[in-house]
Amino acid sequence: MSFLFGGGRPQPSSAEKIAQAEMEFEMVMDAFSRLNSSCTRKCLPTDYREGELNKAESVCLDRCAAKFVEVSLKVSEKFQQDAANARGGQAGSGGMFGM
């Protein structure tokens, strides 16, 4: 998440390092929780006629997770690109996943 944090700052203090690691952890948990709620909504019918996941639902969940992660990467690239354009031309590099 170098485009959001740090990026040329001086040596961080203990408290700063911990706060940053904490925030990154939160972001990953938040990303998962959103993936979970979106894919559950998209892939599970709401009549609950059985407690097991059937084949179609399982496949849908797998693809939904893959697409969510792919979207995360695309969005992150787009934001870095936009930020780079705003700074005056050179593109950002390195993907960022989980946020």
Binding site: M23, R41, V59, K67
Partner: peptide, 25 residues
Amino acid sequence: MLTTYQNLLQGCFDECINDFSTKSI
């Protein structure tokens, strides 16, 4: 800011990604 970012991402995912016959966008 991070929450806003994630809201944006989830909102657009929810509205634009609805085909799960493939695993790529």
